[in-house]
């Protein structure tokens, strides 16, 4: 992957001036390449990584396994795209194994998610089974540990 993308994936707030120094480019060149990535849709957005467990908010997340019968044309794409359009659905992946689609769905409480599953998801043509797991705690998210670990202190000067 391009180093520029690696830097932004690590810290989307990194300034073009600093990125220019790190990659030995001009600031204008960095801005131009970021714009290109945005226009090509390679960069699709910038979001903060939030540890929601620390917030007192009413929210539950469910991880849902979905079995789907593929269609003659388009395979799983049509069903996956229909599911993706619900705003409750945060992520949708096609996976190998015992089931086909893996969803991350949020709601304000269990009932809301249950209603979504029985009322919306299960009724979609082609969906023939679901298994819902409620998420209890997040340890690591997008490569970031969610609990601050005690740092082992290093010496300040070594040879």
């Amino acid at each position: 992957m391009d180093e520029l993308l690696k830097i932004l994936k690590n810290n989307a707030l990194e300034t073009p001036a600093n990125i220019a120094k790190m990659l030995n480019l001009s600031e204008d060149e960095v801005r131009k390449r970021i714009t290109e990535y945005e226009e090509q849709g390679i960069i699709r957005g910038y979001q903060a990584i939030v540890n929601e467990d620390q917030l007192k908010i009413d929210k539950v997340t469910a991880v849902i396994e979905v079995k789907v019968s593929p269609e003659r044309e388009g395979g799983f794409n049509h069903v996956a795209s229909r599911i993706s359009r619900f705003k409750e659905v945060q992520s949708v992946y096609l996976v190998s194994g015992d089931f086909d689609l893996l969803l991350f769905v949020v709601g304000s409480d269990l009932k809301e998610v249950a209603f979504f599953v029985s009322g919306k998801l299960a009724t979609i043509d082609g969906v023939h089974a679901t298994a819902t797991h409620f998420m209890l705690k997040t340890y690591k998210h997008h490569g970031v540990m969610m609990e601050t670990q005690d740092e082992y202190e290093r010496l300040k000067i070594t040879p």
């Binding site: 290093r154 010496l155 300040k156 000067i157 070594t158 040879p159």
Partner: peptide, 26 residues
Amino acid sequence: RSGIRDFFEIVNSMPNVISLGIGEPD
């Protein structure tokens, strides 16, 4: 004595120092 050791003692007595003095990976 190693010049580094002398300097180390000064640095260590000071709080909130940003160190570029470390001969090991972070």
